[in-house]
Amino acid sequence: MSAGPTTSAAPLPSAAGPDVVRLDPDRHVPGRRAPGFGAALNAEWIKFWTVRSSRWSLGLLFALGAGLTTLICWGAARDLAAGATTEVPETFITFGLLFSQLTAVALGALVVTSEYGTGMVRATLTAVPRRGRVLAAKAVVLAGVLFVAGVVTAFAGYLGGNWFLDREGFGVALSDDGVLRALVGNGLYLAGLGLFAMALGLLVRHTAAALTVGIALVLVVGNLAYALPGAWGEWVAKVMPGNAGGTVAQVLPFNGGAVLGPWTGFGVFAAETAALLIVATLVFRRRDA
């Protein structure tokens, strides 16, 4: 290790020696400019659409969401006509959400856990070393896609379900109180749920674990919370992420339990999601990839 190599004084390639050609960095890849957030967004957009799991999840989201709403309304229309139920038709018009929310959780978790499972995250971070930018790009793509998918699914479910309700004379008009809000709210809630699951995925870095925690928290624990006694128990149940966030996506609550108002509920859910995302981002920025 004594005498190192005979290095030339200048570190530039052009001065390294007579055998070394000057490297033109723009030879094959012209247009040298600093790619900004748009480039990261574009990359995440391509990534999202080039794996099967995204397309499968979205297909399932639509099938479950719109399909189940239609099916439930078909059944409800007969019961309503026969006077066999005391429910009001508005309860059923976004019912498929109960199941489509599962696919939103799956999609949100997979967006990050699939990268950890495959080692992709290292490629992602060598391409875009600014980790906050990576997460922002992922979040925009995920939330954007889920919002559109949620609204489209809700409208399809409304059209399908309302056709049956209308036939029996129980049709719900778009202009009725809360209907349009619930349809658009479907997109908002699913987008939020995707981000919530994405934050969970970032924290646990494992698909199965993220799915289990996400689904348990949103569905199981959310429903169990209604069994808690007293006023504080009711309060806890109201602010559980699924219960609070779901309100904006329903014309009238499905389960009859105490809920917050639609926008208050969504506000609480948005705050919970934001808090979880901030924690996940801080952890992600510090952690070795």
Binding site: G31, A39, A40, N42, K47, T50, A127
Partner: peptide
């Protein structure tokens, strides 16, 4: 996606 992330044609 790698090319897109760094503005490579």
């Amino acid at each position: 996606w790698l090319a897109a992330s760094n503005g490579i044609p």
